[in-house]
């Protein structure tokens, strides 16, 4: 399911990813994106800025457990919800 939030996050990821034409979907594994782990942090900060959410460092660490793009979308969705 690619709602507005998923699509926006996927677009941000695509700007950093090295997929050689492959599609990024919620099922795409994060380690298949060809993104340096530190760059993943950069994407998280981008999301922070875009959605006015705050991701504490321990949250960032927790995100180390995220497996795929869909997990990332769900985590952002939760933070936006917590803010509202």
């Amino acid at each position: 399911m690619a709602d507005k939030l998923s699509q926006e996050i996927i677009d941000k990821i695509k700007a950093h990813a090295d997929m050689e034409g492959g599609e990024v979907t919620p099922e795409t594994e994060l380690n298949a994106l060809g993104i340096h782990s530190l760059e993943l942090t950069e994407i998280i900060f981008d999301l922070e800025e875009a959605y006015g959410i705050e991701i504490e460092m321990n949250t960032v660490e927790a995100w180390g457990n995220l497996k795929n793009v869909g997990d990332m979308v769900a985590a952002v969705r939760e933070l936006i919800g917590a803010k509202a």
Binding site: H16, D18, G34, H36, L38, E39
Partner: peptide, 8 residues
């Protein structure tokens, strides 16, 4: 070189 390396 991979993009993952080049960004660094």
């Amino acid at each position: 070189l991979e993009k993952k390396r080049l960004v660094t």
